[in-house]
């Protein structure tokens, strides 16, 4: 596949896309204005239908959640609502007017719990270090859905397959920047090589702290919240200014596969113990008149 402009991403994102390198998103939530251009661009490029045609009453968020048909989702955290304990917020910091907005997406985790759970190999790691569902292999077992610690991947019951963000695998192959990042007017979503992005993101945290935003931190970069419990890093990582739960993100997600061995060991030990008990009972009773005086 050739793009109309070779290496177009060099012009739009300042990076060239080459197989064998690691690519991802850095989403700087302090720059998000909630325009949802990313949601629209994603739906357009990937030909995804709308999920909810009505209004939800959840602030300006009528998308609600990531799903099989929604691969970018802009959250609107209204911090002016009464807080816990009945306290009403009466002051607003001079930043984002007390709104938190965040464009959520598949984190393209490394290692990726969905991929580790998939029994068919439909979910695979691409040459760009992204995580993609191969639609011609998925049999709709649905195991990736509860495996994902971030509630991203989902089944579409009309075609019986799992779907999620592909980090625009087709566009990357053609040398294009992913649609959401390209459409983002404030560069809240930045596409690039992971190492470049991480460096840029660390610099941004320093810059914000220098401006007095000492609550800015990275979520998903190596060694930060989100990249925990056996998940080394999220290839789509974020800059946040409040606790992860406020953005519906787990503070300390864990790699589900690490629970496999301990469970098996305990269960097999129980079977072994009962086998021994059964052997004693059969041996003592000779399989015969057990329980009879």
């Amino acid at each position: 596949m050739t793009a109309l402009i070779p290496d177009e991403s060099a012009l739009t994102a300042g990076t060239t896309v080459r197989p064998g390198r690691r690519y991802g998103f850095f989403t700087d939530t302090t720059l998000c204005i909630g325009c949802k251009a990313c949601e629209v661009a994603c739906k357009e490029w990937n030909a995804l239908p709308a999920d909810i045609p009505g209004l939800t009453g959840m602030s300006y968020d009528n998308t609600v959640d990531l799903s099989a048909d929604t691969w970018r989702h802009v959250l609107f955290v209204e911090k002016i609502a009464p807080q816990a304990g009945g306290e009403r917020v009466t002051t607003m910091p001079p930043f984002q007017s007390n709104w938190l907005m965040m464009s959520d997406v598949c984190k393209h985790c490394s290692p990726a719990p969905c991929l580790e759970a998939c029994p068919t190999g439909s979910l695979f790691r691409t040459e760009f270090d992204t995580v993609v569902v191969q639609q011609d292999i998925c049999n709709g077992c649905g195991y990736c859905v509860p495996a994902c610690p971030f509630g991203v991947v989902d089944l579409n019951l009309s075609d019986g397959k799992a779907h999620k963000c592909t980090l625009c695998y087709d566009r990357l192959k053609g040398g294009l920047e992913p649609a959401c990042a390209k459409s983002c007017p404030t560069d809240s979503i930045q596409f690039g090589e992971i190492d470049d992005l991480t460096e840029r993101a660390r610099g941004r945290v320093e810059e914000l702290r220098g401006l007095g935003r000492d609550d800015a931190y990275l979520y998903g970069a190596p060694g930060t919240p989100g990249a925990t419990g056996g998940i080394e890093r999220l290839n789509a990582f974020f800059l946040l200014t409040d606790r992860p739960e406020v953005y519906n993100l787990p503070e300390h997600p864990t790699r589900p596969a690490e629970r496999f061995a301990p469970g098996m060991a305990a269960g097999l030990a129980a079977v072994a113990g009962l086998t021994l008990a059964a052997a004693l009972l059969f041996g003592r009773n000779g399989g015969g008149d057990g329980g009879r005086p």
């Binding site: 911090k79 807080q83 816990a84 509860p146 610690p149 971030f150 991203v152 991947v153 739960e245």
Partner: peptide, 26 residues
């Protein structure tokens, strides 16, 4: 100003939207 914390029942999370998805197992 106080943000929600893990112990604040009503204020936790994002409009009660499940942060993880349920399996389709029945």
């Amino acid at each position: 100003m106080r943000g929600p914390t893990v112990t604040d029942d009503a204020a936790i999370g994002y409009y009660g939207v499940p942060p993880v998805k349920a399996s389709p197992f029945d």
